[in-house]
Design a protein around this nucleic acid. Sequence first.
DNA 1: TTGAAAGCGCTAACAC
DNA 2: GTGTTAGCGCTTTCAA
Lengths: 335, 335
Amino acid sequence: MSNSEKKKVTIYSVANEAGVSLATVSRVINDSGLVKQETKDKVEAAIVKLGYRPNAVAQGLALKKTTTIALVVPDSSFLYIGKIINGLLDVAKIYKYNITLHTTSSSINEMSEIIDNIVKSRADGVIIYNESLSNSESEVLNSFQVPMVYIGHKTTNLSSCNVYVDYSQALYELVNEYLDKGIDDIIIVEDRKNPDTISQIISGISRAYEEHGKKFDGYVEIPEQYHNSYEFLNEYFSRHKHDVVISMRDSQAVAVLNTCRENGIRVPEDTDVISVLDSRINDMVRPRISSFVIPSYDLGALAMRVMTKMLNGETVKERDYKLNYIYERKASTKN
Amino acid sequence: MSNSEKKKVTIYSVANEAGVSLATVSRVINDSGLVKQETKDKVEAAIVKLGYRPNAVAQGLALKKTTTIALVVPDSSFLYIGKIINGLLDVAKIYKYNITLHTTSSSINEMSEIIDNIVKSRADGVIIYNESLSNSESEVLNSFQVPMVYIGHKTTNLSSCNVYVDYSQALYELVNEYLDKGIDDIIIVEDRKNPDTISQIISGISRAYEEHGKKFDGYVEIPEQYHNSYEFLNEYFSRHKHDVVISMRDSQAVAVLNTCRENGIRVPEDTDVISVLDSRINDMVRPRISSFVIPSYDLGALAMRVMTKMLNGETVKERDYKLNYIYERKASTKN
DNA sequence: TTGAAAGCGCTAACAC
DNA sequence: GTGTTAGCGCTTTCAA
């Protein structure tokens, strides 16, 4: 009966039960102001007795803050962002923030709807792992003074922070090494899902080529009509063979691995295969793929930490936080 | 200047701008009550002009509902639940619900903290993909009358709904087939992370054995001290060889695959390898692993749909929603 | 068809 | 130390 007939217990009920005013109850639950130990005990007893839980919604209204951060990510990417989310949630937990999850499907342009929703929900801040936020949308966030942190993507937005990995430098160094050895038949395989990242990558590679007096043009894009990269790559490697194949994600690298094999190209004897983004898949593939290990967890954790700083009004001197990658040479490369 | 000096625009501002009362504004934003088209136009113009967005927090307070559903999942499982989350979010979007994400780390017992947090945030409902919710915790949810839906886990809790796949039946059918052929050297590899699911599986297998007048005892558990299954399995398969190895998740199946290979056991010539839970990994492994395809997306979507029904007071006749699995025979099995 | 006013549950001056 | 009271922004009777 206590379940079905349960009446709401508010701060009033507690005040009443404890024989104090609601202000006092508020003080003890927030640990603010001075309260005599004796009264405090009474109040706490009442809280336990009634099973009172402060209503965060009412608090949100009164305080004009919700201790909620909105996270925007592309759907279909959980394989890669799982760790990011974990890092993010771990520090969110520490600072008592809740996270609302919003996904964007690549097809429909629903970003503005999502932003609208976030503004309405009065999230204290938003963390975005997505490259398709338009200026007008970030303007809306701006005009509502919602702090923003971008993950994995360096923006030029002045009122937001960026937490990212410098892919350009990473690829520059890698390719440089190959070119130094005289190996220059290098291609990069990509599926246009990360336009910004890929352009960073290309710029790094191009720089290395230029410094060697050469020009990079090994850009292989998986056409949209192929619903999976496998098909396309199988076709591609039946006709091509390169010294080095760099792919954006390790799922693609695996496709490269398999399609090479099926076309009689040995890895790494004939071709080096490298993946830029690493995920758990790589632990399970033979040969293991040489790749950049992106500090995903740290990316998420740092993003959230930066967000809390912005929210606490701590002066955020740095707008850009660059994390280091590590290149892990494994069995898919011989050079 | 409009950014830094931006003053909050509330329903009052709009009422003022439009020269009507706030009640009228409320009516037009909620499309409730009759409003003359003319006034409606005025109000809408004011809304646009001021860039007004209703404050969901205040609405939440007034309506005593937040249109927010809490989702509880184990961290570290995004590989498997990505699709579930996608299904869930897609349906949530349709019904205008927001999702807050809460993860539980297997080590610490923080579930009660999470539940506490959820209650405080006054989520309208909670969807749980986790086997470690204790009775006392679900009691709390109960006492606050928070509707619950469990995913992938059939509970006996009377006030919650379950959306799941019948693993018991799935494994029963599979093993039955083997036994019919006289193949009975079958083991199941598991890492104790899903006690409930695994017990369902064992029960299904055992039933098949019993009906063949035999007893099943091929239960191989990966000891906790091994931080990855690889090590343990490598050791194991250096000394054992079975007709059929069934593993809980495909990441383990891949480990089985690799360790068998490294110990001179051919798959599928010597041993059939089967995975119960499928994930994207399987698309990238050779040989491909025969597995049950769990309708993850549907699991998430249905869970959310059921939740909306509970929330709308639609009578939920069914408490249990069983989804069908499909067994996909691939290259890792010969039988 | 519209407005006035009483909440929703809590915080934060301000007063005692 | 503790109580009073005025919001926070919105919904919803109840009157007009």
